[in-house]
Simulated assay, not measured.
Amino acid sequence: MLSGQILDAMITSCENAKTVLRQAAIDPSDRKTLNISMGATVAAELLGRTPEALSKAEARGRLPAPKTAANGRRFYTVEDLIAIREKLGIKMGKLPSERAVVIAVQNFKGGVSKSTTGKHLADYLALRGYRVLVVDCDPQASMSVMFDVNLEALVDETHTLSNFLSPRIDEADSLRKTIQKTAWPNIDICPANLGLQDTEWELTATIEEGPTAIAGAFRMLRIGLEEVRHDYDVVILDPPPAMGFLGVNTLTAADGLLIPVPARQLDYLSTIHFMQTCREAMDLVSKFDTSIDYGFIRVVCTMFQPNRTNEAQMLQVMEKTYAGQMLSTPILLSEEIKNAGLSMSSIYEINKPYGSHQTYTRCRDNLNMVFREIEKDICKQWPSRMAQVGTDRLTEAA
Rank of each mutant, 00 (worst) to 15 (best):
S3K: 05
T12R: 12
S13K: 12
C14V: 13
E15N: 12
P28M: 05
R31H: 11
N35K: 09
I36E: 00
G39L: 03
T41A: 15
T41H: 11
T41M: 06
T41I: 15
A43S: 00
L46C: 07
A59E: 14
A59S: 15
R62S: 14
L63A: 09
P66Q: 01
K67N: 10
Y76P: 12
Y76E: 07
T77C: 06
E79L: 08
I82S: 13
R85I: 02
K87Y: 03
K94M: 08
L95P: 03
A100P: 08
I103N: 02
S115I: 02
T116Q: 15
L121F: 10
A122R: 03
Y124C: 03
A126S: 15
G129C: 01
R131W: 09
D136Y: 01
P139Q: 01
S144A: 07
M146W: 11
N150H: 12
L154R: 04
N163D: 09
A172P: 14
P185C: 12
I189Q: 02
P191S: 04
L194G: 08
L203Y: 00
L203T: 06
T204D: 12
E209W: 00
I214M: 04
F218D: 09
V234C: 12
D238K: 06
M243W: 13
F245P: 03
L246N: 11
V248L: 08
T252A: 10
D267C: 14
T271P: 08
I272K: 06
Q276E: 14
T277A: 13
R279Q: 06
M282H: 00
D283Q: 08
L284C: 06
V285D: 00
T290S: 05
D293I: 00
R298C: 15
R298L: 09
T309C: 07
N310M: 13
Q316E: 15
M318E: 09
A323Y: 04
S328K: 04
P330V: 10
L332K: 01
A340T: 13
S343H: 08
I347G: 05
Y348C: 06
Y360K: 09
T361M: 13
R364Y: 14
N366V: 04
L367W: 12
F371P: 02
E375C: 01
D377T: 07
I378T: 14
P383C: 07
M386D: 13
A387F: 07
V389M: 02
G390V: 07
R393H: 14
